[in-house]
Design a protein around this nucleic acid. Structure first.
Lengths: 222, 222
DNA sequence: ATAAAATAAACCGACTGTCAGTCTGAAAGG
DNA sequence: CCTTTCAGACTGACAGTCGGTTTATTTTAT
């Protein structure tokens, strides 16, 4: 029995499976056979739609990052929410959004074997999100909440740090985590020359109820 | 013809070649055959000394980082040199030391295909160097030159940024580079709450002669 | 002491299994 | 007729294994 689908539809089907398999087993440990067996298509079909395994990875990451960046864009555009809260929401959205899917993939992604995937994702994310956060910071500067001569670089610096240092945060003890977060806020306030404690004050409203890790929703985040 | 060597000697021979080949072609694009052909040993010999290709990579990085960290340790221990100059030297040593070897490997290392190598090196480097720089910062704090409640995290943040952002600095235009560096110093001064411009003043003495990129020696660096 | 025997260390290279990617040619859908 | 799919055999490259060999060192026997 032969099922014909539109190219786009089939591609997405492939990407869905790839996303699940790469996410659960990693890129190197997923063979192209795994993918095409799971879907039930022939080898030729896979290579009709993608010209290499790496192209599948790239397309998958592309699709994924587009989703994330779209969410981020929505957050930034909520002009009625205070700047600093939107900033916090941005940070959070990258680590808890999409149900617990990102959780699962993040656990995979920072294993050494998935370095390629990790780097590609980080590159994309950085390129896509930096301008958005930068815009946010400029808003903050305009409002006199913060100040820096190099908003773009300030964002790069902090965002990069969040992504690398907080990636393997899960392996740390609870107090270690708290310290890392506190230190980050502390230094973020310095970089952006904010009133001491103003960042913490912005974060608190988002946590007024205790949250189970990685699940329940924030008041603003989707 | 059969040449028998002591294990250590042979291992180092293998690592030498691996270092050169991984450095010039990347990890994935270097086959185990490339390595053993170049040395003129058999397949079995290679696997007698190392149990996998990845173990070769790990050992190579280990050896490399030990050298780097040793140099860094020497720099830190030069108590007669002002703290901020030593700090600068640390940063520089990681990007220009060892002749122009690092240059070559750094160019390779930040290509997407070498993500694994890059990540492993960064992890090692971060773990090895952070404590050294942190000690330096504590000296600075004791001298009243800078101040932070979280020296360790401040170091992690800045050092991580240097490594990631300055890795692909070579591809940027000259003015882009200058801006990035200026921004970094600007924010570093803020993070460590230093007198504005004090970092720049510390850097200048190291550059009193114009230097050819990546070659001639600094007054203090080795 | 010294030759022979045993042990260990280093080495060899053919072989295996896996996997990404190619190719051909036919058939179904629209 | 043109896009999509099928089937799957094939290639070439590669990491890793294995049984066996050579060289060096130590032990034992004489």
């Amino acid at each position: 029995m032969r099922i014909i689908k539109e190219a786009e539809e089939r591609k997405n089907e492939i990407l869905d499976v790839a996303e699940r398999l790469f996410g659960s087993k990693g890129f190197d440990n997923t063979s192209t056979n795994d993918i095409l067996n799971e879907i039930g298509i022939a080898r030729g079909t896979l290579y009709y739609h993608f010209k290499s395994k790496e192209e599948i990875l790239d397309a998958m990451i592309d699709r994924m990052m587009k989703r994330l960046i779209e969410k981020a864009r929505e957050i930034v555009s909520q002009k009625d929410v205070p700047v600093l809260q939107r900033l916090t929401m941005m940070m959070l959205s990258l680590h808890v959004s999409e149900g617990n899917f990102n959780q699962e993939i993040l656990e995979q992604v920072h294993k050494p074997q998935n370095a390629l995937m990790h780097q590609k994702m980080q590159e994309r994310l950085l390129a896509g999100i930096t301008p958005l956060i930068t815009a946010l910071i400029r808003e903050g500067i305009a409002q006199g909440i913060c100040q820096t001569d190099y908003p773009e670089e300030a964002v790069e610096m902090t965002f990069l740090y969040v992504n690398v240092a907080f990636d393997d945060l899960m392996e740390q003890s609870e107090e270690e985590k708290q310290k890392k977060i506190a230190a980050f806020i502390y230094h973020l306030e310095r970089i952006l020359q904010m009133k001491e404690g103003s960042m913490k004050e912005a974060i608190m409203p988002l946590f007024h109820k205790q949250r189970m890790p990685g699940s329940a929703s924030h008041p603003y985040v989707k």
